[in-house]
Amino acid sequence: MTTPNLSTTIKPTWCPGCYNFQIFAAFKNHIEKEIKRGKRKDDFAMVTGIGCHAKIYDYVNLNGINSLHGRGLPTALGMKVGNPKLNIFGFAGDGDAYCEGIEHLIHAARYNVDMTFIVHNNQVFALTVGQPTAVTEIGFADKTTPRGVANPPLNPIELMISLRASFVARVFADVKQIEDVLKEASKHRGFKFIEIIQPCIIFHPDVNYKKHTYFLKDKKHNPKNLDSAIKRAREFDYNKLAPKTRIPLGVFYVEKKATFEEKIK
């Protein structure tokens, strides 16, 4: 069987060395493997928001929509309502998911549309050249906020678990980690929330995250345990890393429940 061409003719315009390339490669690998396992290209659809993350839409030749800033989730919901067989991958930046469209994220956890939602979290508005978002650490300064960010960041993982989203995971922007979590997620029916810590090499560089991260599966974390999931989520509050800060990675929480498509008549 020949693998269908998932490439477009567009040359990526992410900065050289951008972690988005890791996400791009992992996603393409994942879809290619799915197709090798018997899925058809048209079984998949992409939905993106607006920002650096959304450029992935131009580089992967799948159907879908490069939607509006913050509005990818309701768009994906509508697509799933119209065609429940579609396997939808939503992509968003932290600006999309946690600022402009946070209401949709909260409700998405309630609705439980069967889809995968991937947040490229670089803790900054990158494409608009470096303003703080809802998950930027206190003290972060840029031209718009010269005295530094004063408001505490959201903790999206804790938020999603508290809403009992049916699949909550976080990985670092590394091809293998992303592929692994996509594979894990593909076995789960429901709303799959995956946050990728994706440093912006220009406006929010890598502060040696990998030194602080550990894998939940190595600590025998049980993702069905809500209390334990919340506790793990609270270990990292998205503020500046202290020497002892630990950032758990992997699947925090899993709960099986009816999907949106099943619940509507």
Partner: peptide, 9 residues
């Protein structure tokens, strides 16, 4: 936006 989603499929 959901309307748009349903319409495009």
């Amino acid at each position: 936006n959901a309307g748009i989603g349903s319409s495009i499929v």
